[in-house]
Design a protein around this nucleic acid. Structure first.
Lengths: 145, 145
DNA sequence: AATTAAATGCAACATTGTTGCAAAATTGTG
DNA sequence: CACAATTTTGCAACAATGTTGCATTTAATT
């Protein structure tokens, strides 16, 4: 795990690079994402929120981060939106998060498989693909017995 | 569009084949799915609900249908779970809904591309896949100019 | 340091989903 | 076809989740 100094620096730099003003709440929330290897839900962020950031601020911050290309949303089958850090390539308005998302059935942890390519899918006549999301349920490398 | 008689018959038969008792609410809701080419959300079902079926009953019915393999859920990025009819191969506890789901950006309609195969995806060491869901955003065949 | 613009917290509200329980409907059986 | 057993429904109340307006605070700019 990177030390505190490095994380604080990254947080600051990341916010600025995406044209966001640096505030206490944003820094804390972004730090959670940097420390977390996988994805976070709003609920989990609230749980981790020892600083007492307002619930509404968390909603707005997640929206802001998504809009500015810092994080992206991951659709899930059980109606709980997850958020995860975007790769550097993401910019405001243009997400490049076409990697595979893996949800572990045991630890319920969601991992972005950054280096697993999404295959090209042949669509029926008349359909034109924009973005492609792949969600895999299974057992992750940490939970394998 | 199939005529009323045929749909009423199918509804009845489908419910029975899945071991469910035939009630007014279930018939009406299942009929919506049979008439609808794509997927339905809870909200949309409530809107179409001219019969005044209770909100709670709709929730419970969708749960029952999902449990018994009549319909399956489709994850979406905007936190609105969609439901769609399963192919005949689906049975209680064992969904075979590994087809591609297509969400049109123009008409917001979700189509199950039953015949579009989900490709095998090579996972990193230690990950084992269970189910795979593919969600494609784009323009559907009806909205293509 | 002062000004301007943006972000936050609070309160109130809207929407969505859940649970317990009594009333009503469905199914199987004689 | 009527009866009993079981399931399903509607209602009410509640819990959780997400949204909006506005006054106050905070951050960026000069």
């Amino acid at each position: 795990m990177p030390d505190k100094h490095t994380i604080a620096q990254s947080v600051n730099e990341l916010l600025k690079r995406h044209g966001l003003s640096v505030t206490e709440s944003r820094s804390r929330i972004l730090e959670m994402f940097l420390r977390e290897p996988g994805a976070l839900s709003h609920a989990l962020i609230e749980k981790k929120n020892s600083a007492g950031i307002d619930r509404v601020t968390i909603y707005r911050t997640l929206q802001t981060f998504t809009d500015s290309g810092l994080i992206h949303t991951i659709p899930t089958a059980d109606n709980a939106v997850l958020y995860a850090l975007c790769r550097d390539a993401c910019t405001a308005g243009a997400h490049h998060d076409e990697h595979v998302h893996f949800i572990c059935e045991k630890c319920r942890h969601t991992t972005c498989l950054e280096h697993t390519e999404v295959p090209r899918i042949e669509l029926p006549e008349g359909f034109r693909a924009g973005s492609v999301a792949v969600l895999i349920n299974g057992t992750c490398n940490a939970c394998r017995e």
